[in-house]
Amino acid sequence: MSAKGKAIEISADSVDEAIQKGLLVLGVTRSEIEYEIVDEGRSGFLGIGNRLANIRIWVKGGQGDNSEVVETAVVEKEEEAVPEPPAAEITPEAGVEVEPAVPAAVEDMEFDDLENLPDPYLLEEEEVAVEVLTTLFDKMQLDVEIKSQLGEADELGKQAVTIDIRGEDLDPLVGSRGEGVIDLQFLARLMVGQQLRRRVSFMVDVNGYRHRKEEGLEKLALRMADKVTKRQKPITLEPMNSYERRLIHMSLRDQAKVYTRSVGEGASRRVRIYPASEKN
């Protein structure tokens, strides 16, 4: 595929990610491209007020004069020259936009695929995680089947890798309250993180334990939300870890009749569900 002559515009969570995506789209390496930053983006709090980074990227020599310009100069110029677009215009769904220098060439590219490009960092994470866990179970002399999958993007547009481990005789590993799954995930993340020299956030599931637990929590959340709506009084749930609390918050995020807050500190931090009427 020759991408020469085309500049494509790409949005992602950060400029770095956008460049990575661009490299995949163009099918070239880092040294063969040039890019300019259209919008550096901004990470908001819990998905509120964040804006995707936006870059324009092209294969060197593709856009003639631009190759002469020093990168930083481009950045400064762009920021001055281009008025900031209203935030509303940039939606999280805006995946990859293509601005061809030669319109005819665009027809060669398949845009459907480009919009769902996997994050190369996640793919690397997935690969190393499978490798580490395969060795780990080998050393434990447990016969398991290890599958990995890239999850759907969640409400905040974040994707996560899940490593699913299945096998007989794994009940002792799961433990009565899943403590083994939690410990295994904790260790595996550290081991993979150490190898990749960055923080990783893949999930580890054993015989579907985590999956069942998640479903249970979602059901609990909805049931309690119903109760809160009927009684018009807040309900406080059991203490949970951050991941479980997040699941509860997420499952009630779109419920107009209630809202959720976490209260308490440390190990006794719990989710409280309030009727929407109390919000002010």
């Binding site: 434990m140 005789d169 002792p172 590993l173 083994g180 410990d183 295994l184 904790f186 260790l187």
Partner: peptide, 16 residues
């Protein structure tokens, strides 16, 4: 937390 997680794994193996 780390050493305890390692112990969790060895205990599983020990039980077997």
């Amino acid at each position: 937390r780390v050493i305890n997680a390692i112990r969790t794994l060895t205990q599983v193996q020990g039980a077997r």
